[in-house]
Amino acid sequence: MGLYAVTVIGRDRPGTVAEVTRAVAGGGAIGDSSMSLLGGHLAMTFVVSAGISGDLLGESLTRGIPELTVAVTDLAPAPVAPSAAPGSAVPPVPVASSGDLTDDGPPGLAYALTLHGPTRTDVLPVATGLLAEVGCAVTSMTTRVAGNLFVLVADVELPAQADVASLMRAMAAALDGFRIAFRPADPAVM
């Protein structure tokens, strides 16, 4: 059983998402997935567990959704997943392992980063570069451009010993004219 990342990109039109999911589900079991419209283009990513090779899966999807661009990446090695019932043709749904993002070591500090200001070509590399310098993991990120306004929202995990104030100062210095905010994002456990 292989585990693959399937990305599908192309022009959006009514019914496209349904066509894509139908095609992908026909090739394997869908686990995590995300879908966005980026500049008016559909961008979908799936984690798929399938009993065929990545090449065959890619060929199958390309035939099924020929108007869209499909890429299949082999993810090594597939995590242990519940086995399908004997004789079942349905592959198990891929399950993320608890160690996907972090290894050993103290737990990090979860923050939501919001940043907005005038559109600049270097905002993303500057912001993510500064995050990387302090060992910060970006777990989710969205950017939007509306006119001359650039907005970034990211879920980040800072090392426990990170100095958030210093990081904010560094970002403010590097991204003059931007509003930058870090808000604690630890979920309340109830």
Binding site: A112, T114, H116, S140, T142, V151, D155, R179, A181
Partner: peptide
């Protein structure tokens, strides 16, 4: 402050 400063998460911003 703008509402952008209070966005609830990365999936909470929409065009």
């Amino acid at each position: 402050l703008l509402f952008l400063d209070r966005v609830a998460g990365t999936r909470a911003m929409h065009a």
